[in-house]
């Protein structure tokens, strides 16, 4: 498609990129702005970042967010990887149907999943004394959200690999376990890493599902930002948001880098 490179297309594309990154850039810029109110630039400062360190609510929320993201990603990675491996290697009745079920969380509006889980947890609470909405329910909800993403990424990676490699390993004297350990797992690894990193960002950024499945006391950063936005934004929130932006973007770049490296190798 070398023929279609008119300067007009290029200009339009660049404008679209500017459009895509404008909101991110604005938040980043404002996090360094001296001005407490208004949209005028009054000078550079890192004061807002430093003040975050004294903000107990923000620190607690950050801790909650990280704990939530790490726990749920860990569980979802194990479950999702096993699922992807099982689904790409073995048959079971209803596999096609389940394949479609896996895509539900990808397409479904967040809010529907959120209220469905809220209803479900409310139901469980009726029968299970002591079951409270909070970190546990949020973790369960996030794992549900993450499993399909990891499974889809890992399966795509497995589909890219030559199925004969496992036969070659068996041919060279490796039994099933050695084949898995020395061939299948190393080949799946880029997919697992990419999938879990994406799942981590998913959990880090999720607001809607967390908002509905959380309980009193378990606030995450996105929930904190939401309530701040509703009440009125402070530059501290800009700083906090910028930090999340940078972490997410860095994760995605890492994933892209990993994918680029493994794709060249094929």
């Amino acid at each position: 498609m070398k023929t279609r490179r008119s300067p007009l297309t290029g200009l339009a594309a660049v404008l679209v990129f500017v459009f895509l990154y404008a909101p991110l850039a604005v938040v980043l810029v404002f996090s360094f702005n001296v001005a407490r109110h208004g949209t005028m630039w009054e000078g550079f400062t890192v004061d807002w970042y430093l003040r975050l360190l004294d903000n107990q609510a923000a620190l607690a929320a950050a801790f909650n967010t990280l704990q939530l993201a790490c726990t749920s990603t860990l569980f979802a990675t194990c479950l999702g990887t096993a699922l992807a491996y099982g689904m790409s290697r073995y048959e079971f009745p209803g596999k096609r149907l389940f394949h479609h079920v896996l895509h539900i969380p990808v397409f479904i509006p967040d809010i529907v999943l959120a209220v469905a889980l809220l209803l479900f947890f409310a139901l469980v609470r009726k029968f299970l004394a002591g079951f409270e909405l909070g970190m546990t329910t949020m973790t369960l909800a996030h794992i549900t959200l993450q499993i399909p993403f990891i499974a889809i990424v890992v399966r795509a990676r497995m589909a890219d690999c030559d199925p004969q490699l496992e036969e070659a390993a068996a041919d060279l004297g490796a039994g099933p376990w050695l084949t898995f350990r020395h061939v299948t797992l190393p080949l799946m690894m880029p997919g697992i890493v990419a999938g879990s990193l994406l799942a981590f960002t998913l959990s880090l950024d999720d607001f809607v599902v967390s908002f509905f499945t959380t309980g009193p006391g378990a606030t995450t950063l996105p929930i904190l930002i939401y309530s701040s936005v509703k009440r009125g934004i402070t530059p501290e929130i800009h700083a906090l948001a910028s930090l999340i932006l940078v972490v997410s973007a860095a994760t995605v770049v890492t994933v892209a880098f990993l994918r680029g490296r493994t794709e060249v190798k094929r």
Binding site: L204, F207, A256
Partner: peptide, 23 residues
Amino acid sequence: ALTLVVIPFWTNLLVRTYGWQLI
């Protein structure tokens, strides 16, 4: 270029939304 396209998608929706509020 494709990575550049997807980075905003994986960043926090709330942040992007209030970024537009500011703009």
